[in-house]
Amino acid sequence: MSAEEIDRIRDEALAALRAAATLEELDEARTRRLGKRSALAELQRTLGGLEPDARRELGAAINAVRGELAEAEAARRRELEEERDRVVLAAEAVDVTLPPRRPATGHLHPVAETMEAMLDVLTGLGYAVVEGPEVETDWHNFDALNTPPDHPARSLNDTIYVHRLDGVEAVADDGSTGVLLRTQTSPMQIRAMLASEPPLYVAVPGRVYRSDTPDATHLPMFHQIEGLAVDTDLSFADLKGSLEVAARALLGDDVALRFRPHFFPFTEPSCELDAWYGGRWIELLGAGMVHPNVLAAGGYDPEEVQGFAWGMGVDRMAMLRHDIADLRLFVENDLRFLSSL
């Protein structure tokens, strides 16, 4: 067997492998050129009849060719596979600008979420969150909060009263019944004090009601968060510091704030906290040092403890957060509005 013969087998096989146009042709070429019945295999079978030296020489030559052919076959296979992938994957292309397929998701109400965000701040300050009834006695809502009997807030113009549950027809001349929809979260100050001993640090989120016709800035139902801190030595300075921290957490560290004197029957001194927002002062909350009469109504000794309280409007904060000018959007429950937030 001449070296030319081997070279010829090699050259023909290499040409056949390289000429394969498809993976199928390549498989065929491989079987023909490298398989059991290939010229190379036949050549190998002749080895047994050769002298040791010749056998060694030819064997080495065959192995070299076999290696070379396997490499050529693999290279061509890579080329053909790449080509196949290119075509197939191109055919499988989709239009990724079609609308995404989202899992169905709903939305949480902006007022509820604002309330939770505010509670996050207050729990961070160490306040325990408690809740109370919306239908209240006028004792909790007014009397215990140091509100005089003839105070205008008690009138039907301001307060929604309900008929008594015990069936007794007890509507007074002025419409009051002793049972009402709480006009503020403040009655929970009394309930919280009656329920636990000082020191007391609580935040009370909840719905409150007023006898208001809905307009852009009034709703008959809205939300407040009441805060109450009672301890042995709390002062107006603690009130200021606590509310400043809370307001900054909600509106940003740079927000300008001012405490302005105000009046509430259940605190003295009293104040309102304004924030400079959108080019004007916005009233954020009313606050003050808890009036001694209120501490006493809650079963605390005003000579032993002192503290501060505040009530902040949640709906108004939600208006600021979402840049909304009309409160009625919150209760209209239009999905176009709710799903935008």
Binding site: T123, G126, Y127, A128, F259
Partner: peptide, 14 residues
Amino acid sequence: VPSRVPSTGQVGAR
């Protein structure tokens, strides 16, 4: 009036 933040002495929580 100075501003001061009291320690509530409790972990605030819902």
